[in-house]
Design a binder for these strands. Sequence first.
DNA 1: CAGTATCCGATGCGATACTG
DNA 2: CAGTATCGCATCGGATACTG
Lengths: 236, 236
Amino acid sequence: MTERGYGQFCPVAMATEVLGARWNILIIRELLCGSSRFNELRKGVPRMSPALLSKRLGELERFGIIVREMDETSGSPTYRLTEAGEELRDIVMSMGVWGQRWLESQLSLKNLDPSLLMWDMRRNLNPSPLPDHRVTIQFLYPELSRGQKKWWLIVDKHASEPVDLCKIDPGHEVDLYVATDLKTMTAIWMGIITVADATRRGTLRLSGPHSLTTCMSAWMGLSPFAQETKQVRESV
Amino acid sequence: MTERGYGQFCPVAMATEVLGARWNILIIRELLCGSSRFNELRKGVPRMSPALLSKRLGELERFGIIVREMDETSGSPTYRLTEAGEELRDIVMSMGVWGQRWLESQLSLKNLDPSLLMWDMRRNLNPSPLPDHRVTIQFLYPELSRGQKKWWLIVDKHASEPVDLCKIDPGHEVDLYVATDLKTMTAIWMGIITVADATRRGTLRLSGPHSLTTCMSAWMGLSPFAQETKQVRESV
DNA sequence: CAGTATCCGATGCGATACTG
DNA sequence: CAGTATCGCATCGGATACTG
């Protein structure tokens, strides 16, 4: 990529100069999903170095796609999409739908990452089917390394942040245990298999009260693209 | 870009691995516009080396976005979009619309290129307002170098290819002369100014029969994004 | 016409460490 | 928490020439 531009006046080419730069679409995706602070964004693009993220944020601001503002209360910087950036929502979503429909799910299932998965689940979890009191759910991935093995989702409808994610034991009594492997959990999240499938095969085990286990597919929000039906590739 | 992937299972990330690779969106744009042969594609991405184009076509084929087939009659290879590729049309068009709405037109007008412009005009010219007989239109860009100065568009409704583009004098009598500068002509094509504007300012001069000059904005198709209204950037 | 082959330079970007 | 600073390599891709 010895120089960035395409030397074309075509608006598609102009847009591609911005949107085609590595990482940019994913940064915009994070902002569209509601992240706004630097270290929040980092969680969504963990393989990106902070230096590069900072650089890209600057570029996106110069292009008028995001603005950097100081948060009144916390005093820390905040990024949000401008109107121009917000108008990218349909494009980014369409790309996701297209990816889900046409790219091999096998490929996705090679890019497993528990942090990203749990972070996504935190974001999309739906508290409403859950009881009114605080609920603690522990996820266990036995095959993973020490630091990645255990995760806690704490749901409290009445808290300021209804869903919280921890990697260290919050100390609460656990209401529901979910034991599975990362590939299974990711496949469920992506809509490739269901909770029922995995339970039947024995790759997912739930232990806790019936009131929590039976409605798992209700409170566990899936990926926004989960319901997109997979298409079969055209064979030559 | 030390490695290509993002390491994320998210469908947006998967799609971005394919669509974000340099040039790919522009190649797809060309295919969507109807190009199908290698050297036809090259005209749409002149700054791309043939080696790289070839490589990218191979990748796109492996991803199931295009297929390479042999043309029965000519015996030469042909590329066309698969169903998966065709489903990218809305995304690519949306990117163009977004680019036209939000990116500085000044930027576009720094990426002038007469070959791309004339090639685009050839593609979008609308023969129907023109007379039934063959019409030859000569474009003259006095400021350009010898090889880029003169262009001929030959329109013949009854020919197999209704619109032809030449860089060398086809020898026909010219019906309409268009003299202008490249920036003006590009701005007209992009919908930034109109033929009438440019004529009034004297940056575009037409000489030929009234029947051809008055309906120029009718036969000269504009960019597919020309009617998108420009938006003003959010000021901080 | 439709590509390959080869070469080499620029730079994007990843890794790590550090600071206010 | 929110970034900067620095370094060095891998690789992307541009240029040119060549081939069936």
